[in-house]
Amino acid sequence: MSFIIDCATFAPLFLTRSTDYGVTMALDASEIKKIAHLARLGINADDIPEYSRNLSDILAFVEQLNVVDTTGVEPLAHPLEATQRLRVDAVTETNNRDNFQQVAPEIESGLYLVPQVIE
């Protein structure tokens, strides 16, 4: 017996692939680059086709959501739908800079250093 779950075998209960679903949803290289820049994520040019394929697959997969009618349904941001608890306005933290800056890549005079920022 095989342990492999071929996702196609989930059909029709679990629609999976863009091919199963009949949606063509593809992200091209320029879109991948744009999103990567938005997320400040360096990716190798060689890997872009694979990202493009993977992301397109994932997006096609989540397209299934559009099958269901959600008219009038409130989004659920948190399972318990509780409300925000408020904290008393009091200082509870003390200077812990030396401890925190032990893990800092580059510091000087208590400041974190980054390449020159130009406004």
Binding site: V62, L65, N66, V68, P75, L76
Partner: peptide
């Protein structure tokens, strides 16, 4: 289309 829709579906699931 994505995030808001998913959060609505989330309510249906719950």
């Amino acid at each position: 289309a994505y995030y808001l829709k998913a959060q609505k579906v989330r309510r249906l699931i719950r």
